[in-house]
Nucleic acid binder design. Sequence first.
RNA 1: CGGGCUGUGGCGCAGCCUGGCUAGCGCGCUUGCUUGGGGUGCAAGAGGUCGUGGGUUCGAAUCCCGCCAGCCCGACCA
Length: 480
Amino acid sequence: MAESPITPRERDFAAWYQDVVLQGDMAEPAEIVKGCMVIKPNGYAVWEILQRELDDRFKATGHQNVYFPLLIPESFLKKEAEHVEGFAPELAVVTIAGGKQLEEPYVIRPTSETIIGHFFAKWIQSWRDLPVLMNQWANVVRWELRTRMFLRTTEFLWQEGHTAHSTHEEAVEEVLRILDVYAEVAEDIMAMPVIKGVKSKAEKFAGALRSYSIEGMMQNGLALQAGTSHDLGQNFGKAFDVKFQNKEGQLDYVWQTSWGVSTRLIGGLIMSHSDDKGLVLPPKLAPVKAVVVPIYRKDDEKVKVLEAAHRIAKEIGAKVDEREGQSPGAKFFHWERRGVPVVIELGPRDLASGNAVMKRRDTGTKEIVPQSEIPARFKDVLEAMQKDLFNAAQARLKANTVVANSIGEVEEILREVTAERGGGKFVMAHLKDDAVCDARLKEFKATVRNIPLVDEYDGAGKCIVTGEEVDRRVVIAKSY
RNA sequence: CGGGCUGUGGCGCAGCCUGGCUAGCGCGCUUGCUUGGGGUGCAAGAGGUCGUGGGUUCGAAUCCCGCCAGCCCGACCA
């Protein structure tokens, strides 16, 4: 495996990101399939942990996993006007199968609201059938014109929750409950602070009444929409004729929700914590939490060192890097690039003293720990690292969030910001959710990321574009 | 999808402008010895349809055209 240097963030953030993904052995461009990537073992292992964390929480809130077909009749997409308009440009369509032209083409799902709507209509008749709480782990395809590994790929892995309720209130509760689950996983597991909020009309999901999102801030100050939860109202219920008889005996359309997070989270994870030496994984998401690097000269040393290394590794669930012909130094670099939280160095010196050297990936701090205390110390270090990574990310988010009171100010702050140059900010300003305002922001390629659910600022004020009264400041930023 | 840059052993590149022996270099890889607490050193090896298809030419990595892919910008984008 060739190991090239990593471009420093300072020089080119976008190149740095590429390097970290590649050198961290997370993924690589598929090349033979445009815009797609191969998720490699190190990357997929992180995804599996994320899946488990999310899935446990979905189950705990009453959801069940299901699986629907990858192919959807083209006509389904057209049943909800806004939905088709939103997705039509990015659909991949199957027109030939079994050597014959299909009578009706199938689209490869960009998302599954439509096909699920079809089945909801079959399954739901009575208020007693509600709520229906389902989740699907799947791949989807969206023919994006510009892709970046993990952040936006043509095919990606995600989960999509789909629920149906008898009242709007209940649906909204569901939407917010899931938004909380997403925020919890982002913050507690990924150590990535996020802002929960409502998407502007311009940015909401095609076919939704309202969309909610969690927005994270990457190290270059760009926003990343890390998860969305949609209040679909009765739009899909009406489009797919999903009716039920309520307690009063009247027919009504169901109130639906849908919500999703994807492998994009991994991109967010990387851009939240990694550094110029490579990947940094928060302990809770690290497939390998520790590696013991044995150091020895002679064969008798080797035997003793390896014996102790395996004993320690067993106690803490670590891996021993026994590769022959690799110097310890080379091994340190190897694991550093791959984001392993803790590396334990163990050599003859340590055997003599009964100690070991424990090194933290995030701070680079080395400490000498008596071997007997390693399990306890290891646990503490992982906890501290998890907490410190979150705190550092949160401090960065705070430091790069600014208040602005005129559109000129907002433009001044964001105009020159790009993914590679960095310098991005979250600008908090009063702005009406209106096409005129969106257009003004577009002049310098910024968008409203969301309207925070919790107003941590000064309440109502006048829109900096239209002058109309709005009830709180919104998050304006450049985004991925 | 428009613009720019790029594609040469596993990786990073040189060669291309100005066509010409057996296509070089560094890293990595294999074997042996050596070394080992932050990328050990030495030696001997293996490994290339020059992204791809066509064209020009006595001759193409090199010139021309198409296509594919990657990166950046733009437009687009839960």
